[in-house]
Design a protein around this nucleic acid. Structure first.
Lengths: 209, 209
DNA sequence: CGACTATTTGAGCCTGATCAAGACCGGTGG
DNA sequence: CCACCGGTCTTGATCAGGCTCAAATAGTCG
């Protein structure tokens, strides 16, 4: 984005800080704001009335949240770690994007990227077995973090096992057992706040393309 | 869109007609074109190397296909019925969208709409039981068709049972049994090329929000 | 330390998959 | 007209991957 665009955005932006576990918004709330994540990790989820939960995804620095054009948010967003965000009033943001082509392009890029991720995840949810799902998650999460911090064998997992399970359409027990097995097999190593990938080869081999 | 925009688009557009079963493009092909559907239904899918298949979705009139910004298509597209489309060269389309704000807005709208659908479908794939998945599909498909043709109790199903199964992460047998049960229970009626919804109430009641 | 929550581990069960026939249906040609 | 064929769909019987229920263990934060 150009200097001017950034300057214009700065004027509209409000900074928001959330502590761990704090909600940013709830599904169904009036969608007044859009956000970009500056630091930390958020969980995006949809809840069914009977308690079932689908974690749509996780937002990390660089991601937009709430850019759908609905009146209300379609999912809830909660901080998994301390989080800082830039908040924009949707009305301002929309009208700025009308005058600044480059901002709209950036938004559209973000949306299609999200869409690609969502479609990839459909394959995981629809056609992958349990172990493949967990492997897909670990590999992609590592990849995503790598794009921010640089690639590392150590993969931080700020989300709970329950969050992973609800993201992958599994139960917490299945996720736990799968990762326990990998630890016994020296494919991964348990480190505080995450895991270390010891054998990328074997992990990747779990996933047929 | 404005008259001018439409005129500009017309100059770039080529018409494409596909017979039933014809492929439009294959996952991995160089993504030279974007398309909008004029008539008919297409199936969008991803294949795994071992034969498993995920049907990402179905495209009907008004939908864009291939608007992701990747070099190559991320899924294959095939005609389920005879199909007509408008084809645009991606390069032309992109540069036009740079000069015509309104086109980019339209694209962005389409992308976020697709994203919403994808996220809804994640909930279905991740957290719905078999009967709920089929119910969600029938209800949403009916809704989508209704927005084009006007609402009707008769719902055309141009896709095969296998396509439905691969869309819902189920087997053909499960889809078949589920719908057979609904027919016995007079919730739906078998009509050639589709079904007729006899009891919308009970069908909707299968799905907790 | 102690209360609470998250995670791991074990045992048994159930939903939906798999395997296997058989029915249906449209097209084709004798 | 109907026998045949290939594909799609239905139906039945059995199986198993992952879920449920239950309990022990490990973290975490006052």
């Amino acid at each position: 984005m150009s200097e001017d665009d950034i300057a214009d955005l700065e004027r509209l932006a409000a900074h928001v800080e959330l502590p761990t576990r704090a909600p940013l918004f709830h599904a169904g709330d009036l969608a007044r704001f859009v956000y970009t994540v500056t630091s930390g990790t958020l969980r995006l989820q949809r809840d069914l009335s009977d308690g079932r939960r689908q974690v749509i995804g996780f937002a990390i620095p660089g991601d937009f949240i709430g850019l759908s054009l609905d009146e209300t948010y379609r999912f809830s967003a909660d901080a998994l770690t301390a989080v800082s965000l830039c908040r924009f009033d949707r009305k301002d943001f929309t009208s700025l994007s009308h005058s600044r082509q480059s901002l709209l392009e950036r938004l559209h890029l973000a949306a299609t990227h999200e869409l690609t991720i969502a479609q990839d995840h459909m394959v995981v949810l629809g056609r992958r077995r349990a172990e493949e799902r967990v492997a897909a998650f670990v590999l992609r999460w590592r990849e995503r973090l790598g794009r921010i911090n640089g690639r590392s064998a150590t993969v931080g997992l700020p989300m709970s096992r329950q969050d992973m399970a609800d993201h992958l359409g599994l139960t917490i027990e299945t996720v736990s057992r799968t990762m326990a097995r990998w630890m016994r097999d020296r494919i991964i190593l348990d480190v505080p706040g995450g895991i270390r990938v010891l054998d990328q080869q074997r992990l990747a081999a779990i996933l047929p393309d």
